[in-house]
Amino acid sequence: MTDQEPVTDQEPVTAREFGRVERIGDTVRRPAMPWTPAVHGLLLYLEDIGYPHAPRVLGFDEHGREVLTWIEGESGPDGWGKVVDDRGLRFFARLLREYHDAVAGYRPPAATLWSSTTAGPVGDEVVCHGDFGPWNTVWSGARPIGIIDWDHARPAARLHDVAYTLQYTAPFRDDAECLRWLRYPEPPDRCHRIEVFAAAYGLTDTRGLVDEVLRVQEAGIEVVRRLAERGDEPQATWVAEGHLDQLRAQLAWSRENRHLAEAGGRRDPVRGGRTGAGPPAA
């Protein structure tokens, strides 16, 4: 993309600790990071094969920011309410499966630098989105039509993306948080929601999914710690503000209440999974 003068309908989209993201017209301007070339390679591949649910790469602007196409719709906090009912949850799971199937043929080299690793896919791995959640999905009414914020993409097993998003959409959060922050009208049946998501994604059963969610949570803590020690942002700020303690508390809740998410372990009417409250980490 050639340089262009800012247009009058410039509006901030969000602010990240490591840089400002802006909408200008029908484009999104984001700070370029060391892993931006890897993300652009992924997005260009998706464009080449005609995948319709990802932004297109338009190059860089005069400030050195990457320029991507804007996907019109609802996203960010609006996404949480979209996956509360079974219909929205099914659409969401199918979107993830469609992405995984689309990207299966992409084999970037082992020397590719991503935000948290340097690697290429091995065996059956794909380039996972890495931060697949309702907040990073663009919605048109009840249907998801786009996936945004690809900063955390990296090669991994498909199950990584599945487990990562289940921690937020089952969700592996206490009832008070589900009611206050995640837009649930009543405490969720986590086991049922995992079954709905798994079936819509195309899994034949849910065995092992709870263990995988716990592994993803454990690995996430380690990644944040490691990147913070390296001085990367926003992880360094997160750790300084006590974010690791929050992540560890969420993992402890998941371990203590895993029965709520496992077959044969429906909601306990006495305990109800209530062990505290707090805002979502996403």
Rank of each mutant, 00 (worst) to 15 (best):
M1K: 08
D3V: 08
Q4V: 13
Q4N: 08
E5L: 06
V7G: 15
P12K: 11
T14A: 14
A15Y: 14
R16Y: 12
E17K: 13
F18W: 11
R23I: 04
R23M: 01
G25R: 03
D26S: 07
D26Y: 09
V28R: 05
M33R: 12
P37K: 10
H40Q: 13
L46Q: 05
E47V: 02
I49W: 09
P52S: 02
A54C: 12
H63G: 02
G64Q: 03
R65Q: 14
V67P: 11
E74L: 15
P77H: 10
P77D: 15
D78S: 12
G79I: 14
W80I: 09
G81A: 06
G81E: 11
V83T: 15
V83Q: 10
R90K: 15
A93G: 04
A93S: 05
A93P: 06
L96N: 07
Y99M: 00
A102R: 04
A104R: 10
Y106Q: 07
Y106W: 12
A111I: 04
S116Q: 06
T118F: 00
T118Q: 10
G120N: 09
V126M: 04
G130E: 07
G133S: 07
P134I: 00
P134C: 02
N136M: 07
T137N: 06
T137V: 15
W139Y: 01
D149P: 11
A153P: 08
A156P: 10
A157R: 15
R158G: 03
R158P: 14
H160V: 11
D161G: 06
V162L: 13
A163V: 06
Y168L: 11
P171W: 07
R173N: 11
E177A: 10
E177V: 06
W181Q: 11
W181C: 05
P187L: 03
C191F: 01
H192C: 09
E195L: 05
V196Q: 07
G202A: 02
L203G: 04
D205Y: 04
T206F: 00
R207Y: 12
V216L: 05
V216W: 11
G220I: 08
I221K: 14
V223M: 10
V224S: 08
V224D: 03
R225V: 08
R226S: 08
R226W: 10
E229Q: 11
E229P: 07
D232L: 02
Q235P: 05
W238L: 04
W238V: 02
G242M: 13
Q246D: 04
L247G: 04
R248M: 09
L251A: 08
A252K: 13
S254I: 01
E256V: 12
N257C: 01
E262T: 01
E262V: 00
A263E: 02
R266D: 09
R267S: 01
P269A: 01
R274F: 01
P279Q: 07
P280Q: 09
A282P: 07
